[in-house]
Structure formats: structure tokens, C-alpha cells
Amino acid sequence: MASDGVVVEIGKVTGSVGTTVEIPVYFRGVPSKGIANCDFVFRYDPNVLEIIGIDPGDIIVDPNPTKSFDTAIYPDRKIIVFLFAEDSGTGAYAITKDGVFAKIRATVKSSAPGYITFDEVGGFADNDLVEQKVSFIDGGVNVGNATPTKGATPTNTATPTK
């Protein structure tokens, strides 16, 4: 695992066909100046998982989280898009600690492993708008004895992609 920078880890949970599971997305290594904004994309298989919603985690402190935390689910493109932009203008609602960034709610549709993997990152910046190093650890849903650990090695991303 990367020793510096922010680590975004997609949790690994267990479920069975027809059940709804909650998959946490963790941030670790949050910089001392916090995270003022970030955007990134995960990939998944809508034939295996139906993403039914995404909720902000406990490290989102904006009293009205829909102003700073936004997501979009595109089953036709097989992606989930995340956007966080601190909304106070003063840094008061920045992410300042490690913990759960988001909770992905999904219904298991198939007995195949439900991988959720890193696809791309736009950027991560602290309260001074300084770009942060970030790496990703894939996860998803274990169905029966299947284990979604494909790509469990962190993917280092030093520069934003478009």
C-alpha cells in the first residue's frame, strides 16, 4: 500500500443473489490541510450489481451534504461517478479525517463476483488547492465463495486525467 498520499479503498462485503448490500468507500491518509475537492470514477458490471443509491459517509460534515457531495450512476456506461467540492468557501466542510467517504447500496443480481474497480481520477486537492497523490484499492461483493480481489494492489495516480 502507498505510504504517502490519500488511499481510496472500496470495501469488500459478502452478499447473495437478491440481497441488498452496503459497500463502503474509505479514505485513508487524509492530509493535515484536509480535502477540499476530489472527483473520480469507479467501474462495475450492472449485470452483477444493480447500484440503487449512494449515501455520504461520516467524513462528509456539510450539514447539507447534497451541496458538497454528488454522485451519478450510469449503468449503460458501467460507471459510478463521485464528486466532492467543499461548499462553505472557508474550508469548514472539508474532509479532515480518515473514514467512510461514501456507502454504495447495491442489489446482487448474479452469482458472479461483484467487482467495483477504479477507472479514472480527475483530481484530489487540499484546502490550499494543492494537488494530492492518490491511490485506489478495488473491492466489491463476495457472492458465495467468490472473492472480488482483482486489482487489490493500489493504483498510483500522480496526475489528473480527463
Rank of each mutant, 00 (worst) to 15 (best):
A2E: 02
I10K: 07
V13L: 04
T14A: 11
T14N: 07
T14V: 15
S16H: 09
S16T: 07
G18H: 10
T19N: 14
T19S: 10
V21R: 09
V25T: 06
R28A: 12
R28N: 10
G29D: 04
V30Q: 15
P31Q: 09
S32L: 07
K33L: 07
N37M: 01
C38V: 02
C38P: 00
C38F: 01
D39W: 01
F40T: 02
V41P: 00
V41I: 03
P46Q: 05
N47S: 07
V48D: 06
I52Y: 10
I52Q: 04
G53M: 14
D55Y: 04
D55M: 15
G57M: 13
I59K: 14
I59C: 05
V61L: 13
N64K: 13
P65E: 14
S68E: 03
F69D: 02
F69N: 01
D70C: 14
I79R: 01
I80F: 04
I80Y: 10
F84Q: 03
E86W: 00
S88G: 15
T90L: 08
T90M: 09
A92M: 14
I95L: 04
I95E: 00
D98C: 06
G99F: 05
F101M: 14
A102R: 14
A102Y: 15
K103D: 14
K103P: 14
I104P: 06
A106R: 00
V108D: 08
V108K: 07
K109W: 06
P113H: 04
P113Y: 15
P113D: 12
Y115E: 06
T117H: 12
T117C: 15
D119I: 05
G123C: 01
A125R: 00
D128Q: 06
L129Q: 02
V130C: 09
E131P: 04
E131M: 02
E131Q: 10
K133C: 04
K133N: 08
V134I: 14
S135N: 14
V141D: 12
N142W: 08
T147R: 10
T147S: 09
P148M: 12
P148L: 04
G151H: 07
A152E: 10
P154M: 08
P154L: 10
T155H: 10
T157I: 10
A158M: 09
A158N: 12
A158H: 12
P160G: 12
P160S: 12
T161P: 09
